[in-house]
């Protein structure tokens, strides 16, 4: 409990303690990144319970494979854990259903003129709900491109699709999301 209260050790010492199996250190690492990892999982998986399960499996994999992690400065551990969480989410989506199934059936609107303040006026919960409304394929590619900063080539390799498919899916996802946000802003 001392580790949880003082926060005197740095991240490298925390990692070493987690590798040694120190429960207190693991709990501290969990508390440090639980919000970010859970939000990440929620962006990919609309169902909260499924996202929770996936997040816990991701944390479990992080602790088990922490001895393979190479510390490269501040933020490296967060990026490494985030990558594990995203892979866990993709595995869940692959098991559940074909990610890209049904994406092409939707009619997507062309680019719409979206007010810059429209997104600012929305809460995170409302924005997350709009993201959840996207089909799995659109949502996954939109998340990978917008929030993870991946290129279409990387997305194509990760999802086993071509670059053009990734671009097309991203374009449709953005158009659909902008239309939804515009409709939401008009209603409110």
């Amino acid at each position: 409990m001392t580790l949880r209260t003082t926060h005197t050790i740095n991240e490298q010492e925390l990692i070493a303690s987690c590798i040694d199996g120190e429960r207190i250190a693991q709990r501290q690492l969990y508390d440090k990144y639980i919000d970010f990892m859970m939000l990440t999982c929620l962006r990919y998986i609309p169902n909260a319970e499924d996202a929770r399960e996936v997040m816990m499996d991701g944390f479990c994999n992080c602790f088990k494979n922490l001895q393979k992690f190479e510390y490269r400065g501040d933020g490296s551990l967060k990026a490494w854990m985030k990558k594990i969480m995203i892979n866990q989410c993709l595995m869940f989506l692959r098991k559940k259903d074909n990610i890209l199934a049904g994406a092409n059936e939707l009619d997507y609107a062309s680019d719409v003129a979206l007010d810059n303040d429209a997104i600012g006026r929305m809460s995170v919960k409302e924005l997350m709900a709009l993201i959840h409304s996207l089909p799995d394929g659109y949502r996954t590619i939109f998340n990978l491109y917008t929030f993870e900063g991946m290129t279409h080539k990387e997305i194509g390799v990760l999802m086993n699709i071509s670059d053009n498919t990734s671009k097309s899916q991203l374009h449709k996802a953005k158009a659909l999301l902008q239309k939804t946000i515009l409709d939401h802003s008009k209603n409110n």
Binding site: N116, I119, V124
Partner: peptide, 17 residues
């Protein structure tokens, strides 16, 4: 659009969602 979405989600907290 992407930048605004990213900024909005970066400052989000789990308690809000």
């Amino acid at each position: 659009f992407e930048k605004m979405m990213n900024d909005k989600m970066e400052n989000a907290s789990l308690h809000d969602v």
